[in-house]
Amino acid sequence: MQTVGRTIRRFREQQGYSQEAFAQKARLDRSYFGRIERGTQNLALRTLCVIAIALEVHPAELLADVEVTFPPPSGQ
Rank of each mutant, 00 (worst) to 15 (best):
A23T: 05
E20M: 08
A54V: 06
L45W: 01
I8T: 14
G75W: 03
T47M: 01
R38M: 01
A44Y: 02
L55K: 04
A26I: 12
A54C: 11
R9C: 13
Q15W: 10
D29F: 06
S18M: 13
L55N: 01
G5H: 09
Q76Y: 08
A52K: 04
I53V: 10
G16L: 13
Q15L: 10
A54I: 08
Q76S: 10
G39M: 08
F22A: 10
Q76V: 09
L62H: 09
I8L: 04
R46A: 11
T7L: 11
A52Y: 01
D29E: 11
T40W: 03
R27W: 00
L62P: 00
A54Y: 01
F70V: 12
Q24A: 15
S31P: 00
L62F: 14
T47V: 10
D65E: 15
G34W: 00
E20C: 05
S74C: 02
R6H: 15
T40P: 00
F70A: 08
Q76M: 07
Q15D: 06
V4Q: 04
Q15Y: 10
G16V: 15
I53P: 00
I36H: 00
P71N: 10
E37A: 02
E56L: 07
V57K: 03
A64L: 07
S18Y: 13
R46N: 07
K25M: 02
Q41Y: 09
A21P: 03
S18A: 12
R27V: 08
G34A: 12
L48F: 00
F33Y: 08
L63W: 08
G34K: 04
C49G: 14
E67W: 09
G16W: 11
E67Y: 11
G39Q: 05
G5C: 06
V57I: 11
V50D: 10
V50H: 07
F70H: 11
L63Y: 04
R10F: 13
V66H: 02
A44P: 04
R6Y: 15
E37N: 03
Q14S: 09
R46P: 02
R27N: 07
R10H: 14
E37P: 00
S31F: 05
A44G: 07
V68W: 12
G16F: 11
R9Y: 14
V66L: 02
P73L: 00
T7V: 14
G75I: 06
A64F: 06
L48G: 01
E56G: 04
A64N: 08
P71I: 10
Q2D: 12
T40E: 09
Q15K: 15
T7M: 14
L45G: 11
S31L: 06
K25F: 00
S74E: 08
Q15R: 13
R9K: 15
L28I: 11
P71V: 15
P72E: 13
Q19W: 02
V68R: 11
Q19I: 03
S31Q: 06
L62T: 11
R46L: 07
L55Y: 03
L55C: 07
